[in-house]
Nucleic acid binder design. Structure first.
Lengths: 186, 186
DNA sequence: CTATACATGTAACAAGTTACATGATTAA
DNA sequence: TTAATCATGTAACTTGTTACATGTATAG
């Protein structure tokens, strides 16, 4: 049920096509709920059939522009009010850190360096998004700004954490008999 | 493929049953990769068939104790070396913040207060886990400690962020024409 | 003796991914 | 004219969730 509510939210702020939406699900909203176009198009058809969105225009190459209907907004509100949030996080890249002990120290360090690059890239993306977009335009974008701010802090945090982890691994934490990971350093 | 590697990791550190594993996937490892017992038991059967784990003991009530085999560890190593991490995060509770604009300010504030309680609870759990467990015992637990440390920082960050978000919403950010979310305050 | 926690499994369904399939427009 | 990007869709498969189903040991 998450995908459809993400779609209802985006189409309530700005009318757009499935193609546009799939780009949103690859960046901003995709930072907390990724989705492929193969999942988006059938969902748009379902939402249209249920009257929660409507096609309000078209463009070149068969492009179809959708918008959330008042019933769609009401459905979104009902979801926010009547269903409990799912607080579970799914993050494969972090699961892998559990398994880092299978690699020798040099490979583990290279592994963390690659991760760091990725996180730094995400952080840059977030900062750019914050700087570029007009977040005051609608209530939808102001709410989005709250989540984006979390994203910025999240990636800042990840970079700091991975620098700490790198120090620990460099100090030999992953070696049998090596020192324990320590937060206070040393 | 993530679940099986999580299982291989846990069963390499300490021999245990499917029941024990399902508890790990509800807490520590479950913080980055949740899984239900209904997914774990069939996977244990598959891993056994492939020789990546073996049953090394049994207990009361049909309890079966498994352990990762050398081939299993090699499979885990191959996964870490030869496949790219998936950096996508899935977090429904954060997706919902995108939709916070559908609620009037008072309800939005109540919504954030509930979230805060949840994050504070997770943070406490993390801190307790860090304090209680012997993280130096094996290389597996030392790697786990790296991830747990991320968890601690993650939930600290969430609590700080939600306090910020609460201020913004209280200031009227979600009202049409209200002020923009601002990081520097005011 | 009864409730709770331990313990393992399967079945039906829902959600998500990867690959396939096709075609239009635009810029070099 | 040709490559890249835009644009929409479906099919096959994998993964994950919820519900069903059963039985054992332990503590009060």
């Amino acid at each position: 049920m998450s995908l459809r509510h993400g779609l209802l939210d985006l189409l309530a702020g700005e009318p757009m096509s499935g193609y546009d939406l799939s780009r949103y699900f690859a960046v901003s909203m995709g930072n907390v709920w990724p989705a492929q176009h193969s999942q988006i198009y059938p969902e748009l058809a379902r939402l249209t059939a249920e009257g929660l969105i409507t096609q309000t225009g078209e463009g070149p190459r068969g492009r179809k522009i959708y918008q959330t209907t008042p019933q769609g907004i009401e459905a979104l509100r009902a979801w926010m009010r009547d269903s409990k949030p799912d607080y579970q996080v799914r993050y494969e890249a972090l699961l892998r850190i559990f398994c880092l002990w299978v690699l020798p120290t040099d490979e583990a360090l290279a592994y963390l360096a690659r991760d760091r690059k990725e996180y730094a890239r995400h952080l840059e993306e977030m900062e750019q998004a914050i700087a570029e977009k007009d977040w005051g335009a609608h209530t939808t974008t102001r709410a989005a700004r709250l989540t984006i701010e979390f994203g910025r802090r999240f990636y800042t945090n990840l970079v700091e954490w991975i620098d700490w982890a790198t120090e620990q691994v460099a100090a030999g934490t992953l070696q049998p008999g090596g020192p324990l990971p320590s937060v206070t350093g040393g």
